[in-house]
Design a protein around this nucleic acid. Structure first.
Lengths: 216, 216
DNA sequence: CTGCCAACATACCAACCAGTATGTATGGTA
DNA sequence: TACCATACATACTGGTTGGTATGTTGGCAG
């Protein structure tokens, strides 16, 4: 009761911080789902990893499903947005921006091993759960539309070839990124991802309009 | 432990057919793993689906892991071999053969929904289990090598452009196939896969040597 | 100081899991 | 006929799962 062995003298404004607890739950769940998949992710392990109990979890989330949905909407979606939507907004050279985004894909062994959070969850849960599929499809759509609109803008400014379909090309880009990610994850080898990125970058360069005054 | 079961005499009527039971177990396990993933695949459900019990399962397989390994080696590997290795052996036009293989990818809703057995299992288990990863890598390697050697043969015969790296192109082909398969699976929409196949076929055509006397 | 409610912790549950120990019928062999 | 390994079926286990019911504490309103 009075044995304040853990609490320091300097009081924070709040000993309980429900918003922070919720955020930590989301992050821990995201990590465990990333490692084991949603179905095999154990709530007990998630809770133990941040030192809270069932009470905290079921106070903030209705059930495991709701926790998974929140991970998609509040962890994965913002991550994709930060990597593939924001960097492509109002750029002067869409091709360079796309190449930059592709080259910023993490290629360390630890990154390649786990694969893509979005793709992992989509592969596992889309056929099994409509709620996951719907939320994940929103993220994929945002990704594809961001790439497509960047390409379209490049076409109006003359830096992107006119004979490529923006939506088609965006789909192909995502397919290549996810496909190489899968191969690299299975091989557990960063070299596979690096070679894939080179191929994707080469393909992106081929989308550039040939007769455009660029820097020599 | 595998007992040497060489059947000296083929009986016309067998009430017990251990080889057939083993095969049915493999097929049932393959179906359930395809639906739910390996970790979430319930042995009880697998057994109930073919009307056998634990005794039969653990007579033929040491444990669940061994059952999964056998599915890779005896179900998935032969399937990939039949679709991507055998059709590419000693063909007169490699590009046509590859286009044929790509166009033979199932695109019905039921096929697209489940995704690719090989990729599904690889995505789930490669980071978690070295035994799965090793066996699945063998299948991926056989696939990639079959495509690469076909392309290489086409280069020696002059039907394939000399400036493409066969291994690189084979990796790209597989990445595109798996990538589009992932997108289509998540979208639960055959149109996504069909559009992807068109893009892959277009890319394959671009690999053909330009100045080669072909049928007009 | 006193309620009082948010924000958890604790204890517990039925269902399910992979795996095992043991029972049993079958068909071939001696 | 007697025997016996094979090829399963049956019954059971300890451990884990997501979920719940209830207890407890901190901090603010009054």
């Amino acid at each position: 009761m009075l044995a304040a062995r853990k609490s320091p003298k300097r009081r924070a404004t709040k000993l309980r911080d429900p918003e922070r607890t919720r955020e930590r739950l989301l992050q821990a769940a995201s990590r465990e789902i990333y490692r084991s998949g949603f179905q095999s992710a154990s709530l007990d392990i998630i809770l133990a990893s941040i030192g809270v109990t069932k009470g905290a979890l079921y106070y903030h989330f209705k059930n495991k499903e709701a926790l998974g949905y929140a991970v998609v909407e509040e962890v994965i979606a913002p991550d994709v947005h930060g990597k593939w939507v924001r960097p492509l907004q109002s750029v002067k050279d869409p091709i360079d921006a796309l190449i930059g985004a592709v080259q910023r894909i993490p290629v360390r062994l630890v990154d390649v091993r786990g694969g893509c959070q979005l793709n992992n969850l989509a592969q596992e849960m889309s056929p099994l759960d409509a709620g996951f599929r719907k939320r994940l499809a929103i993220v994929f759509d945002a990704w594809r539309k961001a790439v497509a609109s960047t390409l379209r803008e490049g076409q109006t400014h003359g830096s992107v070839r006119r004979d490529v379909g923006p939506t088609d090309a965006a789909g192909l880009l995502i397919a290549m990124v996810e496909g190489y990610g899968s191969l690299a994850k299975n091989a557990q080898d960063p070299k596979v991802m690096k070679a894939g990125i080179r191929n994707i970058v080469d393909w992106l360069r081929s989308l550039r309009a040939p007769d455009n005054r660029q820097r020599g």
